[in-house]
Amino acid sequence: MAVVFERTKGLTPISTHYCPGCTHGIIHRLTAEAMEELGVLDQAIGVAPVGCSVLAYKYFNCDMHEAAHGRAPAVATGIKRVLPDKFVFTYQGDGDLASIGTAEIVHAAHRSENISVVFVNNAIYGMTGGQMAPTTLAGQRTTTSPLGRDPAHAGYPIRISEMLATIPGATFIERVAVDSPANVRKAKRAIKRAFEIQLEGKGFSLVEVLSTCPTNWGIEPPNALKWLKENMIPYYPLGNFRDATKEEVSDGQ
């Protein structure tokens, strides 16, 4: 019988702790499939964050580090400098990367550390119970912005991809979403391209993945996908923000 679908070898054969309807599972699978397809699983060292995906070190079927909150890019830097020929990636949420770990991600990009970052943006703190994230949209209600985020008081939601794309060392920056099958396929292509850039030795790559949090948004999963599309994508537009490998080609022409 022909095999039409198989579980990727890039994930361990255990159930995850993620809430029903959470899209972390999809993003884990895309990340793992990309590693498997590129043949780097046995050469890979991943760094898990603090946040909902804190246990990612149990799910990815490769060597893993569990980092302190926000410090994954620094930990990955240490690993990559020791093992420049191995494949090193971080998997980070928006509290981890866009709030407490902004210094680490900005400087890893500036150094063009030859690492890849999967950045999951669901506009909220999940693990700690739905508090306001740096990426929480204006007006969005959370447990620490119960009346809705007021930018005059709490500032505006941070657009990480746009910001990092201004950094010379950031080789590849793309924002994708996992709200539809078509977008999931695009997300896979972006993650794989980001990983290839590392394997080609071309420097820092990051894919921002817009994701849902049905539990803390208080929206059932199908409507959460719709909410993402209608509310997040207008503020966080999808697309490639930087691909220095293409710029090099066009510069040369």
Binding site: I45, V47, H65, A67, A68, R71, A74, V75, A76, T77, G78, I79, K80, R81, V82, L83, A103, E104, V106, H107, R111
Partner: peptide, 26 residues
């Protein structure tokens, strides 16, 4: 070897964590 000036003390010790976890004397 490799010397790297980190962006902060916090980043530096976490780079140590990564390098040590990868088996290096750091």
């Amino acid at each position: 070897g490799v010397f790297l000036q980190a962006e902060s003390e916090i980043a530096a010790i976490n780079m140590v964590y990564g390098a040590s976890g990868s088996g290096a004397r750091v």
